[in-house]
């Protein structure tokens, strides 16, 4: 064995070209600069386009009036703004608590058990369900039997999308809480539920709030699930419990209006669509920035 050892280490090997390896490296890093430049340029382009085209639509009427009927310019998307807020709120009321307590089960009780593993797998699948399928689900579940489009069915579709998002992020955040904290709370004689809600959840609250806000923002910008559920409406939201027994009946909302108006041949409607797009971008980016500043600065866990 020693004989082969000395043999090999003395026997020279044919080296690879350093110059060639360098060249490959230079080519790759250069193209990575170019790729990044393109990617960042295009993303900037999108934001700038929306701002430039949308800012002209923003006036008092945009935020206070109903959309124009016929060919008269003017009007706004006030009913759609209200509708989007209500639909999103409805989804959050259902989706967030379910996701939150579900995450508590997964991280505090279920852990690596068979039930929890199964639920986690299902959560991942639901996370990947296309949003238009969620819309179709709400349509078939609620709109078909009641013969009425409704904001309520839109909320259900959005809650279905929000639920796995919230569950996953909340579980991740809860898993970051060190076990010592759980043990010391239990060692004080606290019952499990108090230890969990009072200590674990409290320790993870910044992450939980961030996760919840981002989950809400994410569904607020959805369009596809609303196509067959909320539909849209030129009127104000008439009340939470409309003629169909669900709230509102067809409910105006921002994304569907943007979509509809963008398909119209009238410049003033297209202008409104850009104004709505700007509002969505500002809201989404704004909430992201504020959430980051508030909760990520002094990241607790």
């Amino acid at each position: 064995m020693t004989a082969t050892t000395t043999d090999l280490s003395r026997c020279p090997m044919a080296p690879r070209s350093v110059r060639r390896r360098r060249l490959v490296n230079t080519v790759i890093t250069t193209s990575s600069w170019i790729a990044a430049a393109i990617g960042i340029f295009v993303m900037g382009w999108i934001v700038v386009t929306v701002v430039v085209r949308g800012i002209g639509a923003w006036n008092v009427a945009f935020f206070t009036q109903l959309p124009p009927t016929g060919n008269d310019p003017g009007g706004g998307l006030a009913n759609a703004i209200v509708g989007t807020l209500v639909i999103t709120f409805g989804a959050a009321v259902v989706g967030l608590p379910l996701g939150f307590f579900g995450a508590i089960y997964l991280s505090e009780f279920g852990r690596a058990g068979r039930v929890a593993t199964g639920i986690r797998a299902v959560t991942n699948i639901v996370l990947g369900v296309p949003s238009i399928v969620a819309g179709m689900f709400a349509y078939a579940l609620l709109v078909l039997p009641s013969h009425h489009y409704s904001g309520f069915s839109a909320s259900v579709a959005l809650a279905f999308i929000m639920l796995p998002v919230m569950t996953r992020t909340a579980e991740d955040v809860l898993n970051l809480v060190p076990n010592e904290l759980r043990e010391s709370a239990l060692a004080m004689g606290a019952p499990r539920w108090r230890a969990t809600l009072g200590v674990v959840v409290k320790a993870a609250r910044a992450g939980l709030i961030t996760g919840a806000i981002l989950a809400v923002v994410r569904v607020a910008g959805e369009t596809a699930p609303l196509l067959f559920t909320a539909l849209s409406s030129p009127y104000w939201l008439s009340g939470f419990f409309g003629p169909s027994g669900y709230f509102g009946g067809p409910t105006a909302n921002l994304t569907k209006d943007i979509y509809d108006f963008s398909q119209q041949p009238y410049p003033h409607l297209i202008q409104l669509a850009w104004g709505g797009s700007l509002l969505i971008i500002v809201a989404v980016l704004g909430v992201n920035v504020v959430t980051r500043l508030l909760f990520q600065r002094g990241k607790e866990w």
């Binding site: 994410r218 969505i280 971008i281 992201n288």
Partner: peptide, 14 residues
């Protein structure tokens, strides 16, 4: 990261 949160309708408009 924030651009990842921009809804698809915006990409459609653009």
């Amino acid at each position: 990261e924030m651009l990842a949160a921009v809804p698809s309708i915006i990409f459609g408009m653009w």
